[in-house]
C-alpha cells in the first residue's frame, strides 16, 4: 500500500490493495460467522432444551469461553496446524482457511451461548403450545431457532464484530502475508509498527465504518422482515 497516501485518498481512489484487504477481512469473518452459526446455533438450542447432569457446568464454561483470549486461540491453533503439529499435513497454516478456523473457534462460544440464552427464554413461552401441538425434539429446536431469528441476528452480529475486530489470532495463524492473509486489523498493526500512525488510524476508521454499515444493514433487514413476518 503506498505510504504517501492517506487513508481517505486510498478509499476515494479505490486502491486495489486496500479493496483486496477489505474483501479478505469481510470474507474471512463472514465465513467464520456462517460456520460458527451452523455449529453454534444447534448446539446452543440443544443445550437450552436438554437437561442432564453437569449441564450448568457446561453453560458456565460456554459463557466463560466468550472471553477466550484470541492470542491463546491463535497459538493453540498454530501448534495444531503447524507442519510439525497433529494437523500439519493439511498445510493450512498461513492461509485464509486457517484464519477462518481461528475466528470460528473464537466466535463459536459467543453464538452458542447467546443462542442458548435466547432459546431458553423463548422455550418458557412456547413450551405449552408446542407440547400441545405434539412437536418433537428436532421440531422444537428448528421452530425455536426460526422464531428467535431476529434475536439471533444480534448473536450473529456480536460474533461478526468480534471476528472482524480480532487481530491476535489471525496474525498468528495467518502470518499477515501481503496480498494473501493481510486483513484490516493486521494492516493496522503493521502500519502502526512502521510508525505510519495516520494511515493506521485511517484504516481503523474504515474498519469501524464497515462494521457500522454491516450492523445498520442487518438492523434494517431485521426491521423490514419483522414487519413482513412478525
Amino acid at each position: 500500500m503506498p505510504d504517501h497516501l492517506n487513508a481517505l485518498q486510498l478509499i476515494l481512489s479505490g486502491d486495489p490493495t486496500l479493496v483486496a484487504i477489505v474483501r479478505l477481512s469481510l470474507g474471512v469473518s463472514l465465513a467464520a460467522v456462517l460456520l460458527a452459526a451452523a455449529i453454534g446455533m444447534p448446539l446452543g438450542a440443544l443445550l437450552a432444551l436438554t437437561r442432564f447432569p453437569g449441564r450448568s457446568v457446561l453453560v458456565v464454561l460456554l459463557n466463560a469461553m466468550m472471553g477466550l483470549p484470541p492470542v491463546v486461540v491463535g497459538l493453540a491453533l498454530y501448534l495444531l496446524l503447524s507442519r510439525s503439529g497433529p494437523l500439519g499435513e493439511f498445510g493450512i497454516l498461513f492461509t485464509p482457511t486457517a484464519m477462518v478456523v481461528a475466528q470460528t473457534v473464537l466466535i463459536l462460544p459467543i453464538i452458542a451461548a447467546l443462542t442458548r440464552q435466547t432459546i431458553e427464554d423463548l422455550w418458557t413461552e412456547y413450551r405449552d403450545e408446542l407440547s400441545a401441538m405434539n412437536v418433537g425434539a428436532v421440531g422444537r429446536m428448528t421452530t425455536l431457532l426460526w422464531d428467535a431469528r431476529f434475536s439471533l441476528l444480534t448473536a450473529l452480529l456480536a460474533g461478526f464484530g468480534r471476528a472482524a475486530a480480532e487481530v491476535g489470532a489471525v496474525m498468528i495463524v495467518g502470518g499477515n502475508i501481503d496480498g494473501f492473509t493481510r486483513t484490516m486489523t493486521t494492516t493496522v498493526a503493521l502500519e502502526t509498527s512502521k510508525g505510519n500512525l495516520p494511515l493506521a488510524m485511517g484504516l481503523g476508521a474504515i474498519l469501524i465504518v464497515i462494521v457500522l454499515a454491516i450492523n445498520a444493514a442487518a438492523w434494517g433487514t431485521r426491521a423490514w422482515s419483522q414487519r413482513l413476518t412478525g
Binding site: A31, L34, L35, A38, V100
Partner: peptide, 27 residues
Amino acid sequence: MTSRRSFVALAILLGIVSSGTPSSAQE
C-alpha cells in the same frame, strides 16, 4: 424448512470454498 436449510448449507459451503481457493492455487 428444507429449502431454508439447504440455503444455509450452500452459503456455508461457498464461504469455505471461496476462502480456501487461494491455498489451492499456491502451486
